[in-house]
Amino acid sequence: MTQFPSPDRTMANLAVAEALPDILPPIRRRGPVRTFIARHPTLVLGAGLLLLLVLTAVLAPWLGTLDPGALAPARRLRPPSGNNWFGTDQLGRDIYSRVIYGTRASLMVGFGVSLLSSLVGLAIGLVSGFVRWSDGLIMRAMDGLMSIPPVLLAIALMTLSRGSMGNVILAITIAEIPRVSRLIRGVVLSLRDQPYVDAAIACGTRTPMIIFRHILPNTLAPMTVQATYICASAMILEAILSFVGAGTPPSIPSWGNIMAEGRALWQVKPYIVFFPALFLSTTVLAVNLLGDGLRDALDPRMVKGV
């Protein structure tokens, strides 16, 4: 039999806790802005970088740039120096100015394509999700379009049209539409089974009203995230198209064009390719970070960081 120690001896064995201070130290509270930054670091970083690039594009003429098309044959292929920060190309044009102005082309294509393809994709996705008989037809068409690799589709389109900014945006948009429409269709199909949509139908709400009030607002979040990814891939596609000679006309400085011009010389004059490549990668990274951040912020169900 175990012998229980007497109560007073047990008390003696116990350690006595230190007395608590009278008042707990105040909880450090952060302002709403700092809380937001701490919660969504990628979103803030991406958005900040992108904002900086938009400012660069808008303020291009006042950032110490020269005329990006000005030829100076006497000063061709100069390495980076105080006069020409990023050096000059084989026609003597200032690469810094061309790269800074190139921000405009890239952002224009990125934003243009993501906006256009979102709108068209939204329309197609809604029709496909709501008009039953058209669904099979539209989705097979999208399957067909999707089975052509986007780069090749855009190249085929560009070979047959004059190289212009608008045509580049159109060609890339056509290549991106299937992805958006499929996404929207999926969202619409899952929303249609929601009890509140059933309730709206039971109340006799007309279809356009259901679409505008119940479906559209719910497609906004996934569409915004998708639009950022499309923006990133459109920028890469534009650069690829310009790089292979099927993109923005050479008269417009774009990062792909500058790299295409530096292609033949990259072994001896790597800086011609290096600077536009750096800007392109940074921009795409910014947009991708923004997309990842938006996804985590807009969809709390997603595991963070996946």
Binding site: A232, I236, A239, I240, F243, M259, W266, P270, V273, F274, A277, L280, S281, V284, L285, N288, L289, D292
Partner: peptide
Amino acid sequence: AVLGFSLPVFVVGYM
């Protein structure tokens, strides 16, 4: 992985 998504093919290639 994020970097891999963001670096265009020719940038990595030249590097």
